[in-house]
Design a binder for these strands. Structure first.
Lengths: 65, 65
DNA sequence: GACAAATGGAATATATATTTTACATCGGAG
DNA sequence: CTCCGATGTAAAATATATATTCCATTTGTC
Protein backbone atom coordinates (compact mmCIF):
# COMPACT_ATOMS: atom_id res chain seq x y z
CA UNK A 1 0.00 0.00 0.00
CA UNK A 2 2.37 2.67 -1.21
CA UNK A 3 1.17 6.27 -0.98
CA UNK A 4 2.27 9.89 -0.90
CA UNK A 5 1.18 10.76 2.61
CA UNK A 6 4.68 11.59 3.85
CA UNK A 7 5.43 13.87 0.89
CA UNK A 8 2.20 15.83 1.33
CA UNK A 9 2.67 15.98 5.11
CA UNK A 10 6.16 17.45 4.75
CA UNK A 11 4.94 19.84 2.06
CA UNK A 12 2.31 21.04 4.56
CA UNK A 13 4.98 21.49 7.23
CA UNK A 14 3.30 19.09 9.64
CA UNK A 15 4.82 16.60 12.06
CA UNK A 16 3.43 13.07 12.27
CA UNK A 17 1.87 13.98 15.60
CA UNK A 18 0.20 17.09 14.22
CA UNK A 19 -1.24 15.34 11.17
CA UNK A 20 -2.34 12.39 13.27
CA UNK A 21 -4.20 14.70 15.62
CA UNK A 22 -5.81 16.56 12.71
CA UNK A 23 -6.86 13.24 11.21
CA UNK A 24 -8.08 11.73 14.46
CA UNK A 25 -5.64 8.80 14.54
CA UNK A 26 -2.54 7.97 16.54
CA UNK A 27 0.98 8.87 15.53
CA UNK A 28 1.93 5.21 15.41
CA UNK A 29 -0.81 4.40 12.94
CA UNK A 30 0.24 7.30 10.74
CA UNK A 31 3.85 6.15 10.91
CA UNK A 32 2.90 2.67 9.69
CA UNK A 33 0.73 4.09 6.92
CA UNK A 34 3.57 6.31 5.70
CA UNK A 35 5.87 3.32 5.70
CA UNK A 36 3.34 1.39 3.59
CA UNK A 37 3.05 -1.40 6.14
CA UNK A 38 -0.68 -0.94 6.64
CA UNK A 39 -3.72 -1.15 4.42
CA UNK A 40 -5.78 1.68 5.87
CA UNK A 41 -9.55 1.92 5.81
CA UNK A 42 -11.39 4.16 3.36
CA UNK A 43 -12.63 6.40 6.16
CA UNK A 44 -9.08 6.90 7.39
CA UNK A 45 -7.85 7.69 3.87
CA UNK A 46 -10.61 10.25 3.41
CA UNK A 47 -9.82 11.94 6.73
CA UNK A 48 -6.14 12.10 5.80
CA UNK A 49 -7.06 13.70 2.47
CA UNK A 50 -9.26 16.26 4.21
CA UNK A 51 -6.46 17.18 6.62
CA UNK A 52 -3.96 17.46 3.76
CA UNK A 53 -6.35 19.31 1.43
CA UNK A 54 -5.88 16.60 -1.16
CA UNK A 55 -8.03 13.89 -2.76
CA UNK A 56 -7.89 10.11 -2.77
CA UNK A 57 -6.37 9.96 -6.23
CA UNK A 58 -3.52 12.36 -5.49
CA UNK A 59 -2.53 10.67 -2.25
CA UNK A 60 -3.45 6.99 -2.64
CA UNK A 61 -3.95 6.09 -6.29
CA UNK A 62 -1.76 3.29 -7.66
CA UNK A 63 -1.85 2.58 -11.38
CA UNK A 64 -2.89 -0.97 -12.28
CA UNK A 65 -0.49 -3.01 -14.38
CA UNK B 1 -19.15 5.09 3.82
CA UNK B 2 -21.35 6.02 0.92
CA UNK B 3 -20.05 5.28 -2.56
CA UNK B 4 -21.01 4.77 -6.20
CA UNK B 5 -20.02 1.13 -6.55
CA UNK B 6 -23.52 -0.08 -7.37
CA UNK B 7 -24.07 2.57 -10.05
CA UNK B 8 -20.79 1.76 -11.79
CA UNK B 9 -21.39 -1.98 -11.48
CA UNK B 10 -24.80 -1.71 -13.12
CA UNK B 11 -23.38 0.58 -15.80
CA UNK B 12 -20.81 -2.14 -16.53
CA UNK B 13 -23.54 -4.76 -16.75
CA UNK B 14 -22.07 -6.88 -13.97
CA UNK B 15 -23.78 -8.90 -11.25
CA UNK B 16 -22.55 -8.67 -7.67
CA UNK B 17 -21.09 -12.14 -8.03
CA UNK B 18 -19.22 -11.26 -11.23
CA UNK B 19 -17.75 -8.04 -9.83
CA UNK B 20 -16.86 -9.75 -6.57
CA UNK B 21 -14.99 -12.48 -8.46
CA UNK B 22 -13.20 -9.90 -10.62
CA UNK B 23 -12.23 -8.00 -7.47
CA UNK B 24 -11.21 -11.06 -5.48
CA UNK B 25 -13.77 -10.66 -2.70
CA UNK B 26 -16.99 -12.41 -1.73
CA UNK B 27 -20.42 -11.44 -2.94
CA UNK B 28 -21.50 -10.78 0.63
CA UNK B 29 -18.69 -8.31 1.22
CA UNK B 30 -19.55 -6.49 -2.00
CA UNK B 31 -23.19 -6.36 -0.99
CA UNK B 32 -22.33 -4.74 2.34
CA UNK B 33 -19.99 -2.26 0.67
CA UNK B 34 -22.69 -1.25 -1.81
CA UNK B 35 -25.10 -0.76 1.05
CA UNK B 36 -22.55 1.47 2.80
CA UNK B 37 -22.45 -0.72 5.90
CA UNK B 38 -18.74 -1.39 5.66
CA UNK B 39 -15.63 0.75 5.71
CA UNK B 40 -13.53 -1.13 3.16
CA UNK B 41 -9.75 -1.22 3.07
CA UNK B 42 -7.75 0.85 0.59
CA UNK B 43 -6.53 -2.27 -1.21
CA UNK B 44 -10.11 -3.42 -1.69
CA UNK B 45 -11.16 -0.02 -2.98
CA UNK B 46 -8.31 0.01 -5.47
CA UNK B 47 -9.17 -3.47 -6.73
CA UNK B 48 -12.79 -2.45 -7.16
CA UNK B 49 -11.68 0.60 -9.15
CA UNK B 50 -9.47 -1.54 -11.36
CA UNK B 51 -12.33 -3.96 -12.06
CA UNK B 52 -14.70 -1.08 -12.82
CA UNK B 53 -12.15 0.91 -14.87
CA UNK B 54 -12.62 3.85 -12.54
CA UNK B 55 -10.51 5.73 -10.00
CA UNK B 56 -10.77 6.24 -6.25
CA UNK B 57 -12.17 9.74 -6.61
CA UNK B 58 -14.96 8.79 -9.02
CA UNK B 59 -16.13 5.83 -6.94
CA UNK B 60 -15.31 6.69 -3.32
CA UNK B 61 -14.71 10.40 -2.89
CA UNK B 62 -16.94 12.19 -0.39
CA UNK B 63 -16.73 15.97 -0.17
CA UNK B 64 -15.77 17.33 3.26
CA UNK B 65 -18.16 19.74 4.89
C1' DG C 1 26.88 16.94 28.00
C1' DA C 2 21.66 17.38 29.25
C1' DC C 3 17.25 17.94 27.43
C1' DA C 4 13.30 17.82 24.32
C1' DA C 5 10.98 17.07 19.83
C1' DA C 6 10.48 13.86 16.05
C1' DT C 7 10.51 9.38 14.35
C1' DG C 8 10.97 4.11 14.12
C1' DG C 9 9.77 0.11 16.18
C1' DA C 10 7.77 -3.79 19.16
C1' DA C 11 3.98 -6.15 22.31
C1' DT C 12 -0.37 -6.56 23.64
C1' DA C 13 -5.35 -5.51 23.51
C1' DT C 14 -9.49 -4.17 21.09
C1' DA C 15 -12.42 -3.18 17.19
C1' DT C 16 -13.91 -4.39 12.97
C1' DA C 17 -13.34 -5.97 8.07
C1' DT C 18 -13.79 -10.17 5.53
C1' DT C 19 -14.84 -15.03 4.84
C1' DT C 20 -17.62 -18.98 5.23
C1' DT C 21 -21.89 -21.08 5.38
C1' DA C 22 -26.52 -20.80 5.28
C1' DC C 23 -31.30 -19.29 4.63
C1' DA C 24 -34.96 -16.15 2.61
C1' DT C 25 -37.11 -13.31 -0.95
C1' DC C 26 -37.96 -11.69 -5.50
C1' DG C 27 -38.31 -11.68 -10.64
C1' DG C 28 -37.97 -13.81 -14.85
C1' DA C 29 -37.71 -18.09 -17.92
C1' DG C 30 -39.29 -22.58 -18.89
C1' DC D 1 -46.47 -23.41 -10.95
C1' DT D 2 -41.47 -24.56 -10.76
C1' DC D 3 -36.75 -23.49 -11.19
C1' DC D 4 -32.85 -20.54 -11.14
C1' DG D 5 -30.15 -16.30 -10.98
C1' DA D 6 -29.66 -12.21 -8.26
C1' DT D 7 -29.78 -10.07 -3.98
C1' DG D 8 -30.34 -9.19 1.24
C1' DT D 9 -29.08 -10.76 5.54
C1' DA D 10 -27.41 -13.33 9.69
C1' DA D 11 -24.09 -16.10 12.84
C1' DA D 12 -19.73 -17.67 13.76
C1' DA D 13 -14.80 -17.78 12.70
C1' DT D 14 -10.63 -15.59 11.10
C1' DA D 15 -7.63 -11.88 9.66
C1' DT D 16 -6.05 -7.58 10.33
C1' DA D 17 -6.49 -2.51 11.21
C1' DT D 18 -5.99 0.55 15.03
C1' DA D 19 -5.04 2.01 19.80
C1' DT D 20 -2.21 1.90 23.78
C1' DT D 21 2.00 1.78 26.04
C1' DC D 22 6.72 1.68 25.99
C1' DC D 23 11.66 1.95 24.52
C1' DA D 24 15.47 3.41 21.23
C1' DT D 25 17.61 6.69 18.07
C1' DT D 26 18.44 10.89 15.94
C1' DT D 27 18.69 15.92 15.69
C1' DG D 28 18.77 20.44 17.33
C1' DT D 29 19.19 23.66 21.17
C1' DC D 30 20.52 25.27 25.68
Amino acid sequence: MDNHVKAFRLAAGLSQKELATLTGITRQTLSLIEKGTYNPSLKLCLNLCYALHQTLDTVFWIDPS
